[in-house]
């Protein structure tokens, strides 16, 4: 088991700078300026709704009802978050969401990568047919009610298993991982094989370490999907409040505010919790932030990995 590094293609961007700087014309300066302004405006549009929600969530509940808050709270207060984390349902749902995400990511990465390894081996005789069966599941869906009936018949309704057992393989991530593993030079695999490593060792000790960037990308995809899902809770686990998730609670809140009045956003009335008071609009903003922030904290750290991972996968695939 000698060399375990894959050479990265050299960055080839430098060669374009020189000629362009010399040719810089008025047209180019105008284009660059307009382009910058446009992209800045776009970035502002992307980020404003979330900053606005953050500002409302940090504003005093009764003040927030008056509206007109931009990206800065008018009457700063942490009261809304205090209320949110004193609501047992939200508190429990937060931890259930975390637990569910951790379990789903762990099981999914383990099984998907093992399968991807087997399907990436060129000599594997059933590689095409097995891949085809998995790829078809990307498009073939028996449907919401048949899936529900299966979970019900397996006795998994209102159980934690309903969250992670049906999703240990995702065809899309399987293809990403398999494509990446196929690009690992055969020599590495062969030299390990000559050293006497079996398939399981080769997967776990040789191929997995080489796949770290891609595993990070896939792990992020899985984590985002699991953290953000609410339909599984609605369909399978809505009967047990202890299994409720953050997104499901937020969805219930959204549905009730949509029903309360199309555009008033249920701005009247107030929410009580343990003697503390806030208003629905402020409460909703605070829960939105609690549901959004964990993922938003994770993805910039993985940014470097997922962009490079996706790029390698797509260029070589």
């Amino acid at each position: 088991m000698s060399s375990t590094t894959v050479a990265k293609p050299p960055a080839r961007r430098a060669s374009r700078g020189g000629t362009q700087r010399r040719k810089r014309t008025v047209e180019q300066i105008i284009f660059t300026t307009l382009n910058t302004i446009f992209l800045l405006a776009l970035a502002a549009l992307m980020i404003y709704p979330l900053l606005n929600t953050l500002a409302i969530s940090l504003d005093d509940g009764n003040d927030a009802v008056r509206g007109g808050i931009g990206i800065w709270p008018r009457v700063f207060s942490l009261q809304n978050y205090n209320v949110v984390f004193n609501m047992t349902t939200i508190y429990q749902a937060f931890f259930m969401s975390v637990l569910k995400t951790v379990v789903v990511v762990t099981t999914n990465l383990f099984f998907t990568s093992m399968l991807a390894y087997a399907l990436s081996r060129k000599e594997f005789i059933f590689r095409r047919s097995i891949t085809l069966i998995f790829v078809l599941t990307m498009y073939f869906d028996a449907g919401l009610i048949p899936n529900y009936l299966l979970i019900k018949d397996l006795g998994m309704l209102n159980s934690f298993q309903a969250y992670w057992v049906p999703t240990i393989i995702s065809a899309f991530n399987l293809i990403i991982l398999r494509t990446y593993m196929k690009s690992i030079p055969d020599e590495i695999i062969e030299s390990a094989r000559i050293d006497g490593a079996g398939e399981f060792r080769m997967w776990w000790q040789i191929v997995m370490p080489l796949c770290k960037p891609t595993l990070a990308v896939v792990g992020l995809f899985v984590a985002v999907a699991s953290w953000n899902s609410w339909l599984d809770t609605l369909l399978y686990n809505s009967g047990d409040p202890a299994l409720s998730t953050l997104q499901y609670e937020l969805q219930k809140l959204l549905a009730s505010s949509m029903n309360a009045g199309m555009n008033s956003v249920a701005a009247t009335g107030s929410a009580h919790s343990g003697g503390q008071v806030t208003t629905p609009i402020a409460l909703r903003s605070a829960i939105t932030m609690v549901a959004a922030v964990p993922i938003l904290f994770v993805y910039p750290f993985l940014q470097k990995h997922f962009v490079s991972g996706l790029r390698i996968g797509s260029v070589k695939g």
């Binding site: 776009l42 970035a43 992307m46 980020i47 709704p49 979330l50 606005n52 929600t53 409302i56 509206g67 007109g68 808050i69 985002v224 953290w227 953000n228 899902s229 609410w230 997104q247 937020l250 969805q251 959204l254 949509m258 199309m262 555009n263 008033s264 956003v265 701005a267 609009i281 909703r284 939105t288 549901a291 959004a292 993922i295 938003l296 993805y299 910039p300 940014q303």
Partner: peptide, 28 residues
């Protein structure tokens, strides 16, 4: 980084943000 950000928000949150953004000025 900024333009990738909304991708990581759930549809529940996005729908919530959209319903606020599209509402009357008095509701934000």
């Amino acid at each position: 980084n900024i333009t990738y950000m909304p991708h990581f928000l759930s549809w529940v949150i996005v729908a919530s943000l959209a319903s606020v953004a599209l509402s009357l000025p008095s509701s934000g």
